[in-house]
């Protein structure tokens, strides 16, 4: 009996709810609006009273929430700043590297050199030997004697090679020597390394006069793997040991051996402007004909 009553009540209430929903869906819904207005008016005083009681609690809640979010926000921002600083450092490093590589490629294109790129992977720790190791070797076409350059000029010469690396004798090493030419006077001579001291330039002509600031570039000679025209350094003064018979000049290299990172190994110099003479088959043939004619 009780169950039936409950069932009856349930059905009645469900029907009431469905009727209310139907009424609410009518466009001219006066009853539902009136009910809502009445509820709003009736509840308003209670809501206002409770709001007054609750508002300090609400503010406290908001403040506490802010406290937690401020701390976490602060931590998040600190992390972000640290990450951005790290990125800025990496970015600056990449930017410098990019500038180096661009300058290097520009240098190569200006001189018309055929090169292979390499990175410096080790520098000689000795104070009496100025060499470095690069990550290009025989596999890359590098052979002993090839010139190594970077954007500012000549770096040195390949001393020895393995399959994937090469040792380079730097131009400041006392064992380094290269034919050079003064850009302003065209005076030819030899540039020698002097370690941590300035390099020396000895012109072949002892009467050659070079001024401070004169630039020296490589000069080509038969058998040399160093192409002509690669900047070496700038004359800074005349050496005290100069005499009537010999003149020696102190030269500061353009390349800073302590700051080398990317370099190029010169596989071949620029194509010659004047092509080499070729054997002419026609000329030979002509000579043969003439010889035959003479014989005849």
């Amino acid at each position: 009996m009780n169950r039936r009553r409950v069932w009856g009540l349930f059905v009645a209430l469900v029907l009431t709810a469905l009727v209310l929903i139907t009424i609410d869906f009518r466009e001219d819904d006066v009853v539902a609006d009136a009910g809502r207005d009445a509820a709003s008016v009736g509840l308003a005083p209670f809501e206002r009273g409770l709001s007054r009681v609750v508002s300090p609690l609400r503010r406290l809640g908001v403040n506490v929430a802010d406290l937690f979010t401020t701390r976490s926000e602060n931590q998040r921002l600190r992390d972000e700043v640290a990450e951005l600083r790290e990125r800025r450092r990496a970015y600056a490093d990449l930017e410098r590297e990019l500038a180096d590589v661009r300058a290097l490629l520009g240098f190569r294109d200006d001189l018309g050199l055929t090169t292979t790129p390499a990175r410096v992977i080790a520098v000689s720790p000795s104070n009496f030997e100025w060499t470095m190791t690069i990550d290009a070797g025989e596999r890359d076409g590098v052979v002993r004697g090839m010139a190594v350059v970077e954007a500012n000029g000549l770096v040195g010469r390949v001393l020895s090679t393995t399959a994937s690396a090469s040792r380079v004798l730097l131009l400041i090493d006392p064992n380094f020597s290269v034919a050079a030419r003064s850009v302003s006077t065209s005076a030819l001579g030899l540039v020698d390394g002097r370690g941590s001291d300035a390099m020396r330039f000895g012109p072949l002509d002892p009467r050659a006069v070079l001024a401070e600031g004169d630039e020296l570039v490589t000069a080509t000679f038969p058998g040399s793997a160093v192409p002509s025209g690669i900047p070496i350094g700038r004359v800074i003064s005349q050496d005290e040991r100069s005499s009537r018979l010999t003149s020696v000049f102190r030269v500061l290299p353009f390349v800073d051996a302590a700051r080398l990172d990317h370099v190029l190994v010169v596989l071949a110099g620029p194509a010659p402007i004047v092509p080499p003479f070729e054997d002419s088959d026609d000329l030979d043939d002509g000579l043969d004909v003439e010889a035959d004619g003479d014989a005849g």
């Binding site: 349930f10 209430l13 469900v14 009431t16 709810a17 469905l18 009727v19 209310l20 929903i21 009424i23 609410d24 869906f25 539902a32 009910g35 809502r36 009445a38 509820a39 709003s40 509840l43």
Partner: peptide
């Protein structure tokens, strides 16, 4: 339902009764 204006009148009643 009366206190809220976004739900159809009677919908909360229907759900709670069920």
């Amino acid at each position: 339902d009366l206190a809220l204006t976004t739900v159809p009148l009677g919908s909360t009643m229907l759900v709670q009764v069920a």
